[in-house]
Design a protein around this nucleic acid. Structure first.
Lengths: 139, 139
DNA sequence: CTAAATGCAAAAAGTTTGCAAACGT
DNA sequence: ACGTTTGCAAACTTTTTGCATTTAG
């Protein structure tokens, strides 16, 4: 079962309607080797669906994220990036060119345990981003 | 030497001009027991300076951040929050009410070392946020 | 005196919303 | 058929910019 078929099955079981545009956005995210912005997704979709609207892109991205089929990566005032990889992982971000790379690292469960102990707080998840300069950006 | 005097000394040595509004923003941040947005800072300043402009707030926040006297905490499409505490620390954020608490935890140097080893990447810093529900927000 | 900061208004950028028409189930 | 999604335009929010006036050093 391909990742796309798997994701479509997930949509069906969550009663998320299978529309052409929605599947196209999902497929694009699953096969994307970088972390696209809504606008980049819009432009990519635009070649196949010349009349697609940005609102449709945003709407579908939100629905996919709400249903665990994509992740939104927010970066301050910069446009959000989207990630079709919903497995837990961290990110490495270049301060200079903005490139985002995935970082596989053992999940920091101990910090979550610590927080639940010291604070009266029920942890749901955490986010870790490493900033710096990528190879192509340092002298 | 108070935190404010200390910060003003830092401004002088960085050739950052000491204006009434700038010092007021800085003082507000240093004494603020929460993490205010630009708008909250604007409203607080507005009582003392009825004609202050949002542009002045943003301008000063940017200058303070650029000079290491404040930190901007970005949260996606939600307005940025500002932190007068420039010592390294993490944050705990409530998914429900949005409240932000400081988290003192030993800095994760080992992850930075790891990233520099596996990736060709010069790390400058990292950010870690813990999400979940605060006491007042869980049943 | 000079360069930077202020206040104002307008612009910019990203995202959301309202609505009629089209579509999925 | 029904309710959801689409596409369009307009609205909205946060932040930035341009510019004349004021202020700090």
């Amino acid at each position: 079962m391909s990742k796309l078929e798997d994701a479509i099955a997930k949509m069906k079981s969550s009663n998320v309607r299978i529309t052409t545009q929605r599947v196209a956005v999902l497929e694009y995210l699953l096969n994307c080797e970088f972390h696209p912005s809504a606008d980049e997704i819009y432009k990519a979709m635009n070649t196949r669906f010349p009349s697609i609207s940005r609102a449709t892109i945003y709407n579908n991205l939100n629905i996919l994220c709400e249903n665990g089929l994509a992740r939104e990566l927010t970066f301050g005032n910069a446009p959000s990036r989207f990630d079709g990889n919903t497995k837990d992982h961290y990110h490495i971000i270049c301060n200079n060119c903005g490139k985002i790379a995935d970082l596989q690292y053992p999940l920091l469960k101990e910090i979550e345990v610590f927080v639940e102990q010291i604070a009266e707080f029920k942890v749901s998840h955490h986010r870790l981003d490493i900033y710096g300069k990528c190879v192509t950006c340092y002298d």
